[in-house]
Design a protein around this nucleic acid. Structure first.
Length: 290
DNA sequence: CGTTTTTGACCAGCGC
DNA sequence: GCGCTGGTCAAAAACG
């Protein structure tokens, strides 16, 4: 393995604005992959994807991005296997009462446990996922957590392999996938799945940090309904701890957003990292020290 | 020597 | 049922 990849840090990456295609100029391109009723917001949040647990979001993005990342009408980002997801999966196209915990489709419903979890016949549950795109030369963007690579696969319709990482914390089941867009090799698609149950480890090596990646990794892995928008970016759930903290004025309830259906999301104004790590600004004190 | 990465094999889900 | 594909495992190798 080449050490240089680690040392490269985030050199060469740039940040995009949310809500515009990357080719419009270095824009962060957020793709939520929660199983809940994201469709409600499609009209106003063009680049959120109301995908479902079964979709292969990141793998499919590349095949349609950005042209088919439509916002009119559906706004669903279901490229690649779009047909089967949007038409043959009723839970996606018609059901807005998604509840991952209640879902018991053929592809999910039981808790997936790390290690020895995949016994024969045991199904694994897809946890809430989200994906975002970052223009970067390096595949694995620093986000404040430590990750261990556990697999790499060639992806259909893409010359670039997909890498699979899981959080090194033994109690943490968060995983992420990293791949490059086949359409634009400079774009790295990172998909997070799950929710960290621990603090960040800080930013090692003193390198440049992909603040955006870090912030979304932190914010969105904790996002469960009801949603709030942070300056147009749906980032987190309503919890007393969060609302009482610094984001109170900036968090806009979904209901409020619905009054401006044509409003496009604005670029995220992500808070800078703090001494407490990226979770520090959103995780209630009672949830820390885990 | 502990940790991480690599990589081939295996398994599950899905479409046909 | 079969084949394809994505996702994961786990042993070996590499790294620090």
């Amino acid at each position: 393995m080449d050490d240089s990849s680690k040392e490269k840090s985030d050199r060469g990456q740039s940040t995009w604005k949310l809500g515009e295609p990357p080719d419009a100029g270095c824009v962060s391109y957020i793709l939520s992959e929660f199983g809940w009723n994201l469709q409600e917001h499609e009209s106003s949040t063009s680049y959120f994807a109301a995908d479902h647990e079964r979709s292969e979001l990141a793998g499919n993005i590349s095949s349609s991005f950005p042209a088919e990342t439509t916002t009119d009408g559906g706004g669903l980002i279901n490229p690649g296997r779009s047909a089967d997801v949007s038409t043959s999966n009723p839970s996606v196209s018609s059901s807005s009462s998604e509840d991952p915990t209640e879902k018991s489709t053929g592809s999910g419903g039981e808790i997936f446990c790390r290690s020895k979890a995949r016994k024969k016949g045991q199904k694994r549950i897809r946890q809430p996922r989200f994906a975002f795109m970052t223009k970067s030369e390096v595949d694995h963007l620093e986000d404040g957590y430590r990750w261990r690579k556990y697999g790499q696969k060639a992806v259909k319709n893409s010359p670039f392999p997909r890498s699979y990482y899981r959080c090194t914390n033994s109690k943490c089941t968060v995983k992420k996938r990293v791949e490059r867009s086949s359409e634009d090799p400079t774009i790295v698609i990172t998909t997070y799945e799950g929710q960290h149950c621990h603090h960040t480890v800080g930013f090692p090596r003193g390198g440049l940090i992909n603040h955006e990646a870090a912030a979304f990794a932190s914010h969105l892995t904790h996002a469960i309904p009801p949603y709030y928008y942070h300056q147009g970016v749906q980032i987190t759930q309503e919890t007393p701890g969060i609302k009482q903290q610094s984001h109170e004025e900036e968090l806009i309830p979904v209901e409020a957003r619905e009054h401006e259906p044509n409003a496009l999301p604005e670029p995220p104004a992500l808070p800078p990292p703090t001494d407490e790590g990226l979770l520090g600004d959103i995780v209630p004190p009672g949830m820390r020290n885990r």
